[in-house]
Design a binder for these strands. Structure first.
Lengths: 236, 236
DNA sequence: TTAGTTAGGGTCAATTTGACTTTAACTAAT
DNA sequence: ATTAGTTAAAGTCAAATTGACCCTAACTAA
């Protein structure tokens, strides 16, 4: 299996096989500007087709796990992390996604908060890449990442997803940096503040972030929950 | 297959099977009020599990068709219609959706414009139901329909989907009736008109609908295209 | 002719949004 | 100790959008 020599009759007879893949996003300070940027981990293919190219982490669905569990598992296996957020993206099932075999991939996307250690722990076959400048990936994985990015930006603009990039307490400036990084445009700090103050799901604490060089900003806490797909309900 | 006697070891060994189902929506004048209401066709199950209960039309994915083609095909097979609109809804893959066998269903949702003949052509095993008062369906199909309804309403409120319920030419009152039927609330005719006049994708024609009892309303035409998933791009 | 009804245009106040200004609170340098 | 520099936080103002409502146009039927 997974060889380029599979012939037409093999394709016709085998039922389409089912795989789960995950687009995993994390924010990481850019080497140049120092401002946070989107990164994602990819795995190197060690077999044909697309041998030696980078691909989304993924694998088969086992009999005793739900789709989301499978996504969560392969996220843990490739990064060692548990997701802060995990949502189904789309089922990709075009006829010629893989040259050898008909594969239907149910793809999830996730937000994680990697520690420095995790980001540094690149191996021969797992590496982190900037989401906005990716090389050509295996299969249709560039399109999948593009769609995941589009979805992430959409949720960022409308839903309440940004908090999952941050810890429990955060300043409004930190939150704004997340929005700016993902949406890739500057936001007016004063207007940004005004909007969030009218959001009921964000709660002011009595604490302030100390130790900075300037006026200490107030810390806030997120109290809502995103709301999702049919498992959870909130956006397409 | 599809018997309740399948045992645990059969479940463990067999790979999860893959099916495509479709939630098909049409507008049809309500018997009572005469105003348009959402209806959908269901098929009667002729085997266990859930024998004799109503279920979404669906079937297996064949080797030579894309996911969308499979949805389109089973739509045609159950209703005789081609969809005006067709979009992937979600992949449902919980462990216990079917008591006998592990099934992953990739579900699509569609809008159709049935002729009177099509609506009347109910057979023993295919029948149309009001979307807002459904009995208990087979499998998890009630939740699937609820989610499809939620998605339809969402797209109605934000996207440009309403036109697919209508023919090429329509009056603003007809379009408003579609919105009111799907969103299930009255809209102010004057404000509705104002909003649509500022939408570039809706074009005024020189024609008027003649033959009514009152002032003849102008006919409009939709010039945009919805924009969709990754195959097409526009909403989650 | 007139009454009834729908189409289509308009007003007005409340709300939201973007651009911008001002004041507060802190650190670091003089 | 004072001051300059920087970020936090609040406020101002005009433009754009939205919801509620009103008025006139155009048709049919009585």
């Amino acid at each position: 299996m997974f060889t380029t020599s599979a012939n037409v009759s093999e394709r016709r007879l085998a039922p389409p096989s089912l795989a789960i893949s995950t687009v995993i996003f994390a924010l990481r300070p850019s080497e140049s500007s120092g401002r946070p940027t989107l990164w994602l981990p990819l795995v190197r293919r060690i077999r044909e087709p697309y041998k030696d190219m980078w691909a989304l982490p993924g694998g088969p669905l086992t009999h005793d796990e739900s789709l989301q569990d499978a996504a969560s598992r392969n996220l843990l296996e490739t990064t060692g992390l548990a997701p802060e957020y995990l949502e189904q993206l789309y089922a990709f099932g075009g006829l010629h996604r893989s040259p050898s075999q008909r594969v239907v991939s149910i793809v999830y996307w996730a937000l994680v908060q990697p520690t420095e250690a995790v980001l540094a722990a690149e191996s021969e076959n797992v590496s982190w890449f900037r989401a906005d400048k990716l090389e050509k990936l295996a299969f249709d994985h560039n399109e999948i990442v593009d769609y995941a990015l589009w979805r992430l930006r959409n949720k960022m603009a409308y839903g309440s997803i940004a908090y999952h990039f941050l810890g429990e307490y955060f300043t409004l400036a930190q939150l704004r940096e997340v929005y700016e990084a993902v949406l890739d445009r500057p936001l007016d700090p004063a207007n940004f503040r005004r909007q969030l103050k009218s959001a009921p799901e964000i709660e002011e604490t009595g604490e302030f972030l100390q130790g900075g060089k300037h006026r200490p900003p107030r810390l806030y806490r997120f109290t809502g929950t995103p709301g999702l797909g049919p498992d959870n309900r909130s956006t397409p």
